[in-house]
Design a protein around this nucleic acid. Structure first.
Lengths: 253, 253
DNA sequence: TATTGACTCTAACGTAACGGCATAGTTTAT
DNA sequence: ATAAACTATGCCGTTACGTTAGAGTCAATA
């Protein structure tokens, strides 16, 4: 099932222009395009759009939303829980403002003056901002190597659907090739050769993968369960094996 | 007691730049200015700023806020009640979104698909927008003559504090002059002369006061208690007298 | 089948609400 | 009297779209 722009727009209550815009900045590219050039949105796209609207509601900028959603290993469920907390805080803030309004009304009726500080207390966003920062920082920390991350974002924004599948296929091919040679041990020349290609692949497709970053990636593969699970799916123990191989590779240079 | 920009900024949690901006667009001009050109905000200004922040919280544009607050006869208490209602609706909307998030989480856990419509229900702002419109419309209705109202807003935005007092003094002088001649009846030449000057005064200071608008103003004076109260303060019955005199004036042309 | 009318595209300029920076004058504290 | 902390006025930059403009597309109807 696919939907045209206006259908989506009406369904979710945003303007067509907004969808065009999201397409332009690479925040929400429709899964396919009709022969006439019409945007065709899939159910997946709708889910992603829902994500975006959640983030918007929380006051994230579109760029921030994109960074978070695009983050490899982005976990919808985890994100939603975080959203919920932020929303609840927003609600609390609103409740504060409401009681502030009530106080102000009372003050007018009573003819008394309000304290300057208390007048503006409700508008203090600092608490919410703190949370937002935490959320964004977490992403940076985990997937850090910040400059690389940014560079990657820029590059990948241009990619089409086809580019992505091609890149993923290359990556998977390398993974499986390494997996098939696991019994030879991590220092085996053929394994090392594949590791070198893996690094090259990253540099080509995403960002300049320095040795430092490459090492970091190796650690990431075993330290972040989400990566580990993904990689070990190909072959159990592959994640740890990869880190070993990467370490050896880096030490040789 | 007066406060400098940064004091105000820190007190209410907005940036200095924001206050500059509000000054520039005439939304919040400090009551006075130091010899060196420093903005000096009064307690009154702080109250007005609070108003502005309330409106902002509700999603009104600065222009809209300005229109509403500047509206002659703007009633803070009445406005605050309206705010409260809008805020409560916003809160309801947030609660909807929160439960939507919860549902989505549940859907992910259960592995089932969500209905497209229900996915976006929470984001529907239409209810809030309807309220906003009502609020704005009420202003238009009451003080309507829409084009004139807009033109007036544009013109008056440029006025300095001194301009305002000058204009108000002229207006009051005309009011009292007419009041002093009330016993002669509304068709008296001197009264009619003053009415003509009154119309001229409006045209000069605010907007091109057509006959139609002028008639409307006359009606407004007796139909809106806030105006009636204000005018009758000068002399009881003046509001009705003015409408009579304006009617006669308009019929002659 | 030709023709509306509703819809789509890209491209490009416009707008709101500030953020940020440069440059210059002012106040206050030591 | 001199630095630190503020203040002022520009003016350009940014975000998230709105708003035409000009042109192609698609489904229903005359």
């Amino acid at each position: 099932m696919s939907y045209k722009v206006k259908e989506v727009a009406d369904m979710v209550g945003v303007s067509v222009r907004t969808l065009h815009h999201y397409d332009q900045i690479g925040l929400l590219r429709p899964e396919s395009v009709s022969p006439a050039g019409y945007r065709l949105y899939s159910d997946n796209d709708l889910e992603r759009l829902q994500q975006v609207l959640f983030f918007k509601e929380l006051g994230f900028s579109l760029q921030e939303s994109k960074d978070i959603i695009n983050k490899p290993g982005f976990d919808r469920k985890e994100a939603l829980s975080a959203h919920k907390n932020l929303l609840i805080e927003k609600k609390n803030r609103l409740e504060k403002i409401i009681s502030n309004v009530e106080q102000t009304i009372g003050a007018i009726e009573g003819g008394r003056q309000m304290d300057k500080k208390e007048m503006f207390e409700a508008f203090d966003m600092s608490e919410i901002e703190r949370h937002k920062e935490k959320y964004a920082e977490e992403a940076e920390q985990k997937y850090g190597h910040t400059d690389a991350f940014r560079e990657s974002q820029k590059k990948t924004a241009q990619y089409t659907k086809e580019d992505w599948t091609a890149i993923m296929n290359q990556g998977n091919e390398l993974y499986t090739r390494i997996a098939s040679k696991m019994d030879r041990g991590p220092e085996d020349p053929q394994v090392q050769e594949a590791v070198a290609q893996w690094r090259q692949h990253i540099t080509n497709s995403f960002y300049n993968c320095t040795l430092e970053i490459f090492r970091g990636l190796g650690d990431l593969y075993v330290n972040d369960e989400r990566f580990t699970a993904n990689i070990d799916q190909i072959k159990p123990g592959l994640a740890r094996f990869l880190r070993e191989a990467i370490n050896i590779y880096c030490n040789k240079l």
